[in-house]
Write a protein that binds this DNA or RNA. Structure first.
Length: 256
DNA sequence: ATGGCTACGATCCGTAGA
């Protein structure tokens, strides 16, 4: 059983990459972010032709998330309960015996911005919600672009990024607060290559220089972490023409 | 030198991403 997350940065533009990647990587569940599509424009037919069923929540131009699974997603939720938000950043569903939460966390723009304050409020609300989800669902997987590099080893140049958005201590504390609920960063369950990242700036030859950040994550509740056999970052799609600036992260679970 | 891509929806530039 393979779970994946990928910020596609426009599902319309990246649909061919996604279709190819689904065929090559054979995930069972994939969480997508930055679809940038209104719900009526979601490419349901094309997705279903790949053998996946989808749940999605989108808007024009910005944000937007989708959850694809080989069996029909059930009990779909498209917002953090009790947190009023125009921005479409959440889709959760039950797939088989898993509860899956797909997230596109706010970027935060700059430490002194309103968007940063919104990011921290969003994380506080998320924490409350995930606590409730964990209370109901022991087999919980949280996947997405969390827009936080949890530690300095997740940053190509920690000195340059020190205190900056995506790396600031309050953001890292918000990430750790999710883990403290009983979620494990699947990537860190295993030995990993140094300087492993999931996002590289389009500018400044970011990918070629491996000037990246690890901000796309898979968090697993204890029973799933115990079943996790591997967690990898697939850099192949980042090498294609017209790539997303993010690349997929995959966790493989052993049979229960 | 604080830029440098990319996507989008608006026009032929501004906003946002991270």
């Amino acid at each position: 059983m393979k779970l994946a997350t990928w910020n596609v940065n426009s599902l319309k533009v990246r649909l061919p990459h996604l279709v190819d990647w689904l065929a090559a990587a054979q995930p069972d569940v994939i969480c997508l972010q930055e679809t940038k599509l209104e719900d009526g424009k979601f490419p349901q037919t094309e997705i279903e032709a790949t053998g996946f069923q989808a749940a999605w929540s989108g808007q024009k131009t910005y944000n937007g998330v989708a959850l694809l699974a080989r069996s029909a997603p059930r009990d779909i939720v498209t917002a953090i309960p009790g947190f009023a938000d125009e921005q479409k950043r959440v889709v959760a569903a039950t797939v088989g015996d898993l509860r899956v939460v797909c997230l596109y966390a706010p970027n935060g723009q700059a430490i002194d911005s309103d968007k940063y304050a919104y990011k921290l409020r969003w994380y506080a609300a998320l924490r409350g919600w995930l606590a409730d989800e964990l209370a109901c669902h022991t087999r919980l997987a949280v996947l997405g672009d969390l827009n936080v590099a949890p530690e300095d080893r997740d940053v190509h140049d920690p000195k340059a990024w020190e205190g900056q958005v995506l790396c600031s201590e309050p953001e890292r504390a918000a990430f750790r607060a999710l883990c403290a609920l009983g979620l494990e960063d699947a990537y860190r369950l295993f030995e990993q290559p140094e300087k492993s990242f999931s996002w590289w700036d389009y500018r400044m030859l970011g990918f070629r220089r491996n000037a990246g950040l690890r901000i796309d994550h898979i968090l697993l509740s204890a029973p799933l972490a115990a079943q996790c056999a591997s967690c990898t970052i697939d850099k192949a799609p980042r090498k294609l023409e017209r790539p997303s600036d993010h690349t997929p992260v995959i966790a493989e679970l052993r049979a229960a």
